[in-house]
C-alpha cells in the first residue's frame, strides 16, 4: 500500500499516524518532504521507519523548498512520473490529508 503524506511532520501528525498504522511505501509530497530533511528532530524517526517502509520523496517539492542538499540517505527521490509509477504499482493508495 502507498501512503501519501503532504504535511510537515513539525506541524501535523500525519507521518506519525502512518508509522503507527501501516506498512509498505510512503511518498512524501508538498510540505511532507520536510520529513526527509537531515539534521531535524524527525530524522531518527525516518531512519527507524526505513526498516519497515520504503520511503520516497517528490523531487520537485524538495527542490522548491531548498532542501535538495540535505535529504536523508535511504530516501528515494522520484519525479511526477515516478509518483504515477508508485500509484500504479500499489493496489491501494491513501492520501493522509
Amino acid at each position: 500500500m502507498l501512503h501519501i503524506i503532504n504535511k510537515s511532520p513539525y506541524d501535523r501528525p500525519a507521518l506519525d499516524s502512518v508509522l503507527k498504522t501501516g506498512e509498505g511505501a510512503i511518498l512524501l509530497i508538498e510540505d511532507g518532504v520536510y520529513a526527509a530533511v537531515k539534521g531535524g528532530a524527525v530524522e531518527a524517526k525516518i531512519k527507524t521507519a526505513l526498516g519497515k517502509f520504503k520511503i520516497y520523496a517528490l523531487t520537485p517539492d524538495i527542490d522548491a523548498r531548498g532542501i535538495a542538499d540535505r535529504v536523508i540517505d535511504g530516501v528515494t527521490q522520484v519525479d511526477y512520473a515516478g509518483f504515477v509509477d508508485l500509484v500504479a504499482e500499489n493496489k491501494t493508495s491513501q492520501s493522509w490529508l
Binding site: 520537485p60 519525479d79 511526477y80 512520473a81 509518483f83 504515477v84 509509477d85 500504479a88
Partner: peptide, 11 residues
C-alpha cells in the same frame, strides 16, 4: 502535474 504525468506515461 500528476494528471499530466499520468497521460504522459500513456495511462
Amino acid at each position: 502535474l500528476f494528471a499530466q504525468a499520468v497521460l504522459a506515461k500513456g495511462h
